[in-house]
Design a protein around this nucleic acid. Structure first.
Lengths: 240, 240
DNA sequence: CGTTCATTTGAGTGCCGTCAATATAAGTGG
DNA sequence: CCACTTATATTGACGGCACTCAAATGAACG
């Protein structure tokens, strides 16, 4: 019940579903599992046979350089299916791990393929989900390539807020995001030291503050301007 | 004939196609068009009604910051369908333009949807193509976030070589890529001046040289090591 | 053969990285 | 509940990669 509700919320945000669609989703065989923080789920080079639904907690996807530096591709929140691409890309080109203690649902590729085959509308919704994923990566490329540190940070926090709000996990200007400055650095391509300085700057300028995993946006307008955040790329309206 | 051959080559690299699949592709209504260099095809905010197949020449996808700085997302080569995502994301979040004079084929969404509906294998191949696109974006995020200028350049050229080779447009260690240092800078998040210095460094170290759109790889091994290039993320083997 | 675009090089600056040390918080065992 | 350990956050000093500004050279094009 709890299991499919996260998935249903997500898919409803991707397409209009009818009762049969909902029924098909609810009868999906999902293998629930609790996992501690910092545990690997999929590694680069793996051949996964199923996809991982984030039910509760936070997941992180990342790639590493030869010299061991990590780049976080994205932080995943309840309702996300971070490795949906493994349905058609059979060798994983990156890693997926838990960021916090998590409840995840494992869904076999076979079951997902059957679902996609039986219910074309759901297939389109899943495809759309992977396309939004790609759109987020494009924004990340823009962020890393063209914006300075404070802008990258502003953009990052506003994206997380927007996505968390979409699944009812951000109320008002405050939300919970249990990550360290190390993680922020790995996501934004900057050193921990510099992350700290940027956060201090944002705090001093009364734009945003962060303490022990709680983010508070103090001035949404100015933070949005700084980070040039425009949620268009999140494609949150399924009718568009 | 020429039109569908680029598309067939691409789809054959994505999935095993049977005669019916090939027939369906060959009877796709494609509206061919010649375009000059530097012309816009899709703009951010547009609602495209079709997709654009690159038949001949080079296309470029990019996003701009509020202050007008451009970030190139990718350079597209014959066989690519750069805006395939518009099939399910109805508002474009970025721009698509010609980089050189091009021949493009416009395929309506209606025709593509019909094709995907009639031939599930082709639908999967198209989905897979968009997933590879996303995988390339992830590598780009890693490149921009964690590698220094010379590494980014090395990685960029090796990716282009690999992709061009896959469609028979790179023989040996040399290939044609009609871009300016300005473009390279916009793709790799660095200034033109610095691109020039990096190219000089690569040339002096006998790794690579570039003159008037002709790239020659002088030392593949060392260039690969420098750029940490591993073609896994291109997912060029359809059986994996 | 002049105009324009692209490439190249130098000088100076600054954002951000590394190194190092300290402070604070969190977690652990006695 | 308090020593001890470890993780995370914070701050300063210093250096370097890459940016900006500016100018010169070379290539392309009508």
């Amino acid at each position: 019940m709890e299991l499919t509700s996260a998935l249903l919320t997500k898919l409803r945000a991707l397409a209009e579903l009818n009762d049969d669609d909902v029924g098909a989703i609810q009868s999906l065989p999902i293998n629930m599992r609790n996992m501690p923080a910092g545990q690997s789920i999929v590694r680069q080079g793996d051949h996964p046979t199923g996809c991982c639904l984030c039910v509760e907690g936070f997941l992180v996807r990342w790639k590493a350089t030869v010299t061991g530096k990590r780049q976080i591709m994205g932080i995943h929140i309840p309702g996300d299916i971070p490795d949906l691409q493994s349905l058609h890309l059979h060798v994983s080109d990156h890693d997926l791990s838990t960021l916090t203690a998590c409840t995840v649902g494992l869904i076999s590729h076979a079951a997902l393929r059957q679902l996609a085959h039986d219910r074309p509308k759901i297939a389109d919704a899943l495809w759309r989900d992977t396309l939004i994923e790609a759109a987020m990566m494009r924004e990340r490329v823009l962020n890393l390539g063209q914006r300075h540190a404070a802008q990258r940070a502003a953009n990052f926090f506003l994206e997380m807020r927007s996505r968390l709000a979409a699944v009812g996990r951000a109320k008002g200007n405050s939300f919970h995001l249990p990550i360290t400055q190390q993680h922020i650095g790995e996501a934004l391509g900057m050193s921990v030291v510099h992350v700290n300085r940027v956060l201090k700057e944002l705090r001093n300028n009364k734009l945003l503050e962060m303490q022990r995993g709680k983010i508070t946006i103090l001035d949404e307008r100015r933070l949005t301007d700084l980070g040039e955040f425009d949620s268009l790329y999140l494609h949150q309206d399924p009718s568009l």
